[in-house]
Amino acid sequence: MLNQLIGIIFSETFVFSIFRITTPILFAALAAVIAERAGVTNIGLEGIMMISALTGVIFSAKLQSAWLGLLFAILLGVLTALMIGFFALKLKTDIILAGIAVNMLGNGGTIFVMFLVSGDRGYSANLASKVMPAINIPILQNIPILGKILSGHNILTYFAFICVLLVWILLYKTPMGLQIRAVGESPNAADSVGVSVNRIKYIALGLSGALAGMGGAFMSMGYMSSFNTNMTAGRGFIALAAEAMGRAEPVGTMLTSLLFGFADALANNMQSLGLPQELVAMTPYVFTVVGLAIYAASTLKKNRKKLE
């Protein structure tokens, strides 16, 4: 069985599937990174993804353009994230509660809106929605093994990994990033030097909503070709774990997201080898617990060193 498993892990389709599975998690995890660095915990990622997944399907069907669908999905993601900001920053509700409210909105509200728009309730059977194209990368696709692994993904999969770079540049190479980090680390200090703390937090939440929105759009317009109720199925929460394990660093978060993608892909294959489903379903969560334990141990060590 171990030999079989190793054979599967080193197969091209397996590695290819890791990138596909990782994509929605990575988008949402990057969304969590930006929000977290600005000191606003965006727990509503799951809800934003659901709302954007539906928005993308509706607008791509009505406007007959996948790109316009994506644009509106991002827009709604931003608006929903800003709504969390409005509740938390302006009306001073607990941001966790605001996030939970958005998650509930994403759950029940999407069914409600889908029914209003198309008469569907379970899945968007009546909406002729579009999907984002898959891309074959010229030269690369002809390289034997690499081509099959790296070429032919959905355009949003490539963009998710490009976003890792973009978020890194934003956080570490731009004045805005400096302000975001300053606000996140010490809002009072940032305020004292004239940074508008709430403005930065709104911007961070907006960016976070845009990224989660793309993750949602990928679910219904790339991964699948339709919207299904509850289709994000907890990926927004897995993303929060990936962000925590990745210490809110873009690159670290990418690696932990890939780890989740790997664990998920592995779980899918382990079942067909006859391992019990309950055991296999635990795999991604075992990775989380182990990862968090390693993280906790390393911070503890670091802190101890600091004290010495």
Binding site: T13, I21, P24, M219, Y223, M231, A233, N268, Q271, Q277
Partner: peptide, 25 residues
């Protein structure tokens, strides 16, 4: 007969991945 379970009735992504694995089998 290759039998696999999604673990719920709504995770379409996982349903797709599992079916892909079956095609590989």
């Amino acid at each position: 007969i290759d039998t696999q379970y999604v673990g719920n009735f709504y995770d379409t992504g996982k349903g797709k991945e599992i079916a892909n694995v079956m095609v590989n089998n």
